[in-house]
Design a protein around this nucleic acid. Structure first.
Lengths: 117, 117
DNA sequence: GTATTACATCGACAGATGTGAGTGTTATTG
DNA sequence: CAATAACACTCACATCTGTCGATGTAATAC
């Protein structure tokens, strides 16, 4: 599933022959699309998007116990969402005693943000 | 599931009382989070993200028959992805005879892009 | 008219996803 | 030690998702 190549000028030939020939395209930019789609997918849930929003606005690191009352979800569900964000590389966490502090990874959203602009 | 409020300064009280009081938060910005998450979700698939990439780079409108050979998927699958992008408001289409031309909706990615920056 | 083309929709399927109750782990308090 | 708190993990379940074959629809070519 490649991309990033100039499209052939379309020719209108409804019958007799195919519209487009199955040309082979290089796989440039596919890796990037996979990475960016993974980040976008992680942001594709309202709660996770708001979690990232809170963590970004809060300069330092935020305790999970402070995030929980912000949302109308059970604690395991919050853990699940934070895990997804961690796996996507958007946030990271740090244990300190009983508490877990989460923060947005620097430059985690950079690639997607640049592409969107 | 509200957000966008300053978090209370955390107090370390491991035993005896809860870490955070269940304060009521206003529902500001929830609508925006829902909209942006919907867009992000639509971009959360490599093929759809590349589709948007192609359509954005191509100034005009692109025929479906030109998009199909770019990806290693069946035609109904491509239709499915384009439908998702349409429902998310990211692209729109225009019928012209046998062909369907797709194009990126202006400002469709604006809100998410601004938030990400 | 029939045949063909471009595209959407339907139906079915395996796999992923969001949710929460229950449980486990680790650390702190008493 | 026991009790409690914060958080992650397991399991189960309903729903959603990506995929494709088959079919439908509309338009063009013959």
């Amino acid at each position: 599933m490649p991309v990033d190549l100039e499209l052939a000028p379309k020719q209108k030939r409804p019958a007799g022959e195919r519209c487009c020939e199955p040309v082979v395209y290089p796989d440039v930019q596919r890796e990037q699309a996979l990475r960016m789609a993974e980040v976008a997918k992680a942001l594709g849930d309202p709660i996770r998007l708001q979690l990232v929003d809170v963590l970004r606005k809060h300069a330092g690191k935020v305790c999970v116990c402070e995030l929980l009352p912000l949302f109308d979800i059970a604690q395991p569900t919050l853990s699940h969402h934070l895990k997804k964000l961690r796996y996507a590389g958007i946030v990271d966490s740090e244990r300190k005693g009983l508490w877990a502090y989460y923060y947005v990874t620097p430059d985690a959203l950079k690639e997607l943000s640049t592409w969107l602009t």
